[in-house]
């Protein structure tokens, strides 16, 4: 059995989450409630911070599933954390497009500034460093996903200042860290200038 077994704490949804969970389960047709296993695991992870064995048992009970079936799901998807994680989970994409655009630098800065290797969490519980496969935002590569937000167009300097800002508890606005809107050119449009006028 892999990690996470060190806690025996119990888990239960808060009243709010219980309401949400019931609403999620109600989305599935009669007899197919077990399909709600993924959203419920996510909800529980948002409450506790990670998917502990107690979470898995609780969700299994909640859906009337054998515990092993929920373990299978929770251990298959990398987004369910099977160990305690920090306040900021740094998911660095190192797949080819990000790598071509300099993800090695992002990784280097992350490791230097946090002192962590992939898969580790610092003692203060601030950062967890994780290596992930393609995040699907190659157009603004390289990408660093922090919790639910994407920070895009990174280089060494931007990564360093992003990490400093996070450490100070003032995360910048998500999205590209270059002076541009989404994937548009810096300084505004350079083509299709008449398009707005026409429509």
């Amino acid at each position: 059995m892999s990690g996470g077994a060190e806690t025996a704490e119990s888990f239960a949804f808060t009243a709010d989450h219980l309401k949400t969970a019931k609403a999620v389960v109600a989305r599935y047709p009669e007899g197919r409630q077990q399909s709600a296993v993924m959203p419920l695991l996510d909800l529980a992870q948002r409450q506790l911070g990670w998917t502990s064995p107690a979470v898995i048992e609780y969700v299994a009970d909640f859906l009337g599933l054998p515990a092993i079936r929920v373990w299978e799901v929770a251990s298959f998807y990398t987004m369910y954390y099977r160990e305690r994680v920090g306040q900021y989970r740094l998911h660095v994409c190192t797949t080819t497009p990000c790598w071509l655009r300099g993800s090695d630098e992002v990784v280097r800065v992350c490791k230097e500034k946090t002192g962590l290797e992939f898969g580790e969490t610092d003692e203060k519980g601030l950062f967890t460093l994780l290596e992930v496969e393609c995040l699907g935002a190659c157009v603004n590569a390289p990408i660093l996903q922090v919790n639910d937000d994407y920070y895009e167009d990174l280089d060494a300097a931007r990564t360093a200042s992003l990490l400093d800002a996070l450490a100070e508890g003032r995360p910048p606005a998500a999205g590209t860290l270059r002076e541009r809107l989404n994937s548009a050119p810096e300084g505004g449009k350079t083509t299709l200038l008449e398009a707005d006028a026409r429509c």
Binding site: M1, S2, P66, I68, R69, W71, E72, S75, F76
Partner: peptide, 8 residues
Amino acid sequence: PTIGAIGR
């Protein structure tokens, strides 16, 4: 149902 496959 107590045997399963965990991980990927």
